[in-house]
């Protein structure tokens, strides 16, 4: 396959179109705007639909309408915009509508700045909006994965009737890498529950209202069962030299790329270090992390926030070994050399 140099923000649009996306509703925000630019061009030229909404609130509700009508629909934004979509995410979850959101994370809180952070982790992985719900959260760490994850996200969203969040960051989005685009073009099938404005679907209702307590309890249990099914079937991660590692770094997205170099550097000096990179953040590879948490070993969580994923890792490790936290924020991205220094402290300590 031909590898073409492209930005992650470009790869994700192309992957999504090949994955069957037909409707993109967006609102510009750095560092995600390039996705809207690409979608405006390619969705329009391919006879799909691109529409710039008046706000992220409207964009997510346009997606609610398109998904209700059986379309494969998506948007892309960054923290401040995704925050505005949380109301819609909750309604999508309650109505069990499939959609795809790309969050190209920037640094916060507030307007913050446009450098990378991974501080939308909690917002995206813990549901984010009101009520008890979750999104499937994929964490690409390369341009290739931006394309591949977008390509499979729509099948996943349809299968689980859930929102799939592709949780990227300013570097993964704006970096250029060689990407081999997927070859098979997917299409969404007709959905038995959607409203198509025809006789067959006339009796269908898209709603998140359940007036009885028992009925709503049942819906909640149905959602939880779905999340457990997702945990069983979708949990995905990658390991690098964890077999004999005394120190295993857990990292996702751009941080995992930096950690990979750090692991290679330390291995070349003979240190037994490894990397576990979650490719899904919800469901989270907690069982594998628990398995790897050896007495006598050590884990470290490297992330561009104040310790959001570390809390999930610590819960999985449950005290079996020490867990260090390597945190950077404000848009500060460590070099591999800095990561090596932190890891050496742990190896010595």
């Amino acid at each position: 396959m031909k590898r073409t140099l492209m930005k992650g923000n470009d790869a994700v649009v192309r992957g999504a179109l090949l994955g069957g996306a037909t409707h993109f509703f967006g609102y510009p925000i750095t560092p995600a705007s390039e996705i809207a630019h690409g979608a405006a061009d390619l969705f329009t030229r391919s006879g799909r639909t691109f529409l710039q909404a008046e706000s992220e609130t409207s964009a997510i509700n346009m997606m609610y309408g398109a998904a209700s009508s059986g379309a494969r629909t998506m948007t892309a934004s960054s923290g401040p915009g995704v925050a505005l979509m949380l109301e819609g995410l909750s309604y999508l979850a309650g109505s069990q509508l499939p959609t795809v959101i790309v969050d190209v994370q920037r640094a916060g809180p507030g307007l913050g700045n446009i450098w990378p952070e991974q501080s939308d982790y909690d917002m995206c992985c813990k549901g984010g909006g009101h009520g008890g719900f979750h999104n499937i959260v994929l964490a690409p760490s390369s341009g290739q994965e931006m394309a591949d994850f977008a390509h499979k996200a729509f099948d996943m969203a349809d299968a689980y009737r859930m929102t799939v969040v592709i949780l990227s960051d300013a570097y993964i989005g704006q970096m250029m890498e060689p990407v081999a685009l997927p070859q098979d073009v997917r299409h969404g099938a007709r959905k038995s529950w959607a409203v198509y404005g025809d006789e067959e679907s006339r009796s269908n209702l898209i709603s998140s209202i359940v007036m009885s307590q028992e009925g709503l309890a049942n819906l909640n249990m149905e959602l939880q069962a779905k999340y457990q099914r997702a945990a069983r079937d979708l949990t995905d991660w990658e390991e690098e030299q964890t077999e004999d590692a005394q120190l295993i770094v857990v990292a996702f997205g751009i941080t995992a790329r930096i950690a990979l170099t750090a692991v290679r550097m330390l291995r070349s000096e003979g240190h037994r270090v490894g990397l576990l990179r979650p490719k899904t953040l919800f469901p989270f590879p907690q069982e594998r992390i628990a398995e790897l948490a050896q007495v006598g070993g050590r884990m470290a969580v490297a992330e561009l926030n104040e310790g959001m994923m570390a809390r999930d890792v610590e819960r999985a490790v449950a005290g079996r070994c020490p867990v260090s936290r390597y945190n950077w924020f404000g848009g500060v991205v460590p070099s591999a050399e800095e990561m090596v220094l932190r890891m050496k402290e742990d190896l010595d300590g």
Partner: peptide
């Protein structure tokens, strides 16, 4: 066919429907 919408958002939801069907 029926869709229940969030408070105030129906015209955006309708936009999504109208653009799909």
């Amino acid at each position: 066919g029926n869709i229940q919408c969030a408070h105030g958002r129906a015209p955006a939801v309708g936009t999504g429907v109208a653009r799909s069907l």
